[in-house]
């Protein structure tokens, strides 16, 4: 860990202006991932800009969308009555994440920025294209049990580790960003994270001088009827082997809208739109769920140790949809 200076920002402008000029500086909110990364020497920041004072707060329904302030804590959002009732997948994804202690600290904005748990990324002695571009990816021939089967490249197969982002991906969430000029832009969550390609060091579209202000989730029928299922090696405090966030709008026995997003299998939060299309206009039967699940893994590229994910994620999709209809 390196020495760093610490600045408390009282306005968004103050914070983003620092980063505009000092791109090595980092924003710190809950710090639950940043400090780990710095202690392990994976990231070195000469300056930390504390953004906890920023007024990016509130969990409310506005213009047909749930607006979650980026500084809200995971536990507060997960236990919020509005979220619980109208966006159950979001609540479930949050409360199945990490541990109560971490959820009490970690912010929503920070959660979307969390970095991969790939063991090669997390140990600086390993080559890693994400951490050290051009150094190689030993995970391709090594320990890839936890790594991605979708969206990988020759350069990187690191899994996006989040739960919340999976639920948000399913429910068409939008990320609201603000830059040093005070200009705001809205980016669909699905476009917020990017595929590794040949530049795995780049994980999101966020610019150096931009901050996440809020996350907006449309209040739809499929959000109200949504569900998140997470499969992991132990009952709590583990990242997903696979996970699925699903939402359905079913009327008169027919599916009018379907949403399926996957975790633990993609290099970014993975939306399975082909699978969704297969469900629209169909009955909510196990047979149809299975067909959709099969479509969701089309094109998967498993490695030696993560082959099981192809089947497990399909079963998880079916499970999530069945539980949703139960």
């Amino acid at each position: 860990m390196n020495n760093f200076s610490y600045t408390q920002a009282s306005t968004a402008k103050e914070a983003t202006n620092i980063r505009k000029d000092a791109k090595d500086a980092a924003f710190i909110a809950g710090g639950t991932t940043l400090l780990d990364l710095m202690k392990a020497d994976i990231e070195q920041h000469p300056q930390l800009v504390d953004i906890n004072m920023l007024p990016f707060r509130g969990i409310e329904l506005n213009d047909g969308s749930l607006r979650i302030g980026a500084m809200e804590r995971m536990s507060d959002v997960g236990e919020n009555a509005l979220v619980l009732q109208q966006f159950p997948a979001v609540s479930e994804a949050l409360l199945l994440s990490a541990s109560p202690q971490l959820r009490n600290m970690a912010s929503i904005g920070g959660n979307l920025m969390q970095r991969t748990r790939c063991g090669y990324f997390r140990d600086t002695a390993f080559p890693c294209n994400k951490r050290n571009p051009g150094s190689g990816c030993p995970a391709q021939q090594g320990d890839n049990r936890n790594l991605a089967i979708l969206g990988g490249s020759q350069a990187c197969i690191a899994t996006n580790a989040g739960d919340l982002a999976v639920a948000l991906a399913a429910l068409d969430a939008v990320v609201l960003l603000e830059n040093a000029k005070g200009k705001q832009r809205r980016v669909p969550l699905l476009e917020f994270h990017v595929l590794p390609g040949t530049t795995p060091q780049r994980e999101t579209i966020i610019e150096a001088d931009e901050l996440i202000v809020a996350v907006l989730v449309p209040a739809t029928a499929q959000a109200r009827k949504s569900h998140y299922v997470k499969v992991r090696d132990r009952a709590s405090y583990a990242f997903a082997l696979v996970s699925a966030a699903v939402g359905l709008d079913v009327q008169g026995g027919q599916i009018r809208a379907a949403r399926i997003a996957l975790g633990g299998v993609g290099t970014k939060p993975w939306r399975a739109q082909e699978a969704e299309k297969l469900l629209v206009g169909k009955a909510a039967t196990e047979e149809n769920f299975r067909a959709a699940a099969a479509a969701a893994v089309r094109g998967a590229q498993p490695r030696e140790h993560n082959r099981f994910k192809v089947e497990m994620v399909q079963k998880t999709i079916v499970r999530a949809l069945q539980e949703l209809m139960a």
Binding site: R117, G119, Y120, R122, D123, A125, F126, P138, Q141, G142, D143, R145, N146, D233, R234, A235, S236, Y237, A238
Partner: peptide, 25 residues
């Protein structure tokens, strides 16, 4: 504990990734 077969180095040397039972188990 997973040891990379080519580099002979552990890939999950932390209590986040080396799983021991939690109360819920």
């Amino acid at each position: 504990t997973f040891r990379d077969p080519n580099l002979a180095r552990y890939t999950n040397a932390s209590l986040g990734e080396y799983h021991i039972p939690v109360n819920a188990d």
